[in-house]
């Protein structure tokens, strides 16, 4: 027997979450819940395991391919298990004008990880505009914004990621 996808605790959260999501849409439009349902799965597992996507598809009464199509279109879904901390660095124009390229290079060197790659601890990625242009440069760690970053502030932040 393969290991079950969810622990009993996770299973409870998933079932309640799916029921809540489906209740937000007309009864014949369950599949509209795809984005929130995939988010729910990712919050529970840290990524989107294939059997999880199949389960989501079954609940929303669509084919598994539909779940995979959506999951692969949006950059925030992880089709592979990421590091414990996902660091998304904005390098778009307003941030670049405040040194984002240099900040990214510093992170690559400090983490020993080129942008676009992962290890156990970190996934380091370049990302597009995070709507922090007035508080550039910025990045997200696991979807939390960190703004107006200096080298000192970034070092302080990294020291907390253990």
């Amino acid at each position: 027997m393969a290991e079950p996808l969810f622990t009993p605790e996770e299973q409870k959260k998933f079932d309640a979450g799916i029921a809540e999501i489906i209740s937000h849409y007309p009864p014949d439009r369950k599949s509209a819940g795809m984005l929130p349902a995939l988010r729910l799965l990712q919050e529970l597992k840290g990524w989107l395991p294939p059997e999880g996507m199949r389960l989501v598809a079954r609940h929303l009464e669509v084919t598994p391919e539909r779940a995979y199509e959506v999951a692969s279109f949006y950059v925030m879904y992880h089709l592979k298990k990421p590091g414990k901390y996902v660091i998304d660095v904005c390098t778009n124009l307003s941030c670049a004008l405040w040194g984002a390229e240099k900040m990214l290079a510093y992170l690559e060197q400090k983490l020993g990880l080129p942008a676009g790659e992962s290890n156990e601890m970190f996934t380091l990625r370049e990302t597009e505009c995070l709507a922090s242009c007035g508080t550039a440069p910025c990045l997200q760690v696991n979807e939390e914004h960190h703004e107006s970053l200096t080298k000192a502030k970034l070092d302080e932040l990294l020291a907390k990621l253990t």
């Binding site: 439009r29 984005l35 929130p36 959506v70 279109f73 949006y74 950059v75 925030m76 879904y77 505009c129």
Partner: peptide, 25 residues
């Protein structure tokens, strides 16, 4: 509240509707 998942195109109104319907944008 429905949260997107990282796609600029979903700010285009019809892509937003597709996304709200649970599809790629």
């Amino acid at each position: 509240v429905v949260r997107g998942a990282g796609a600029y195109i979903c700010g285009e109104e019809t892509a937003l509707l597709e996304s709200l319907e649970g599809k790629k944008g």
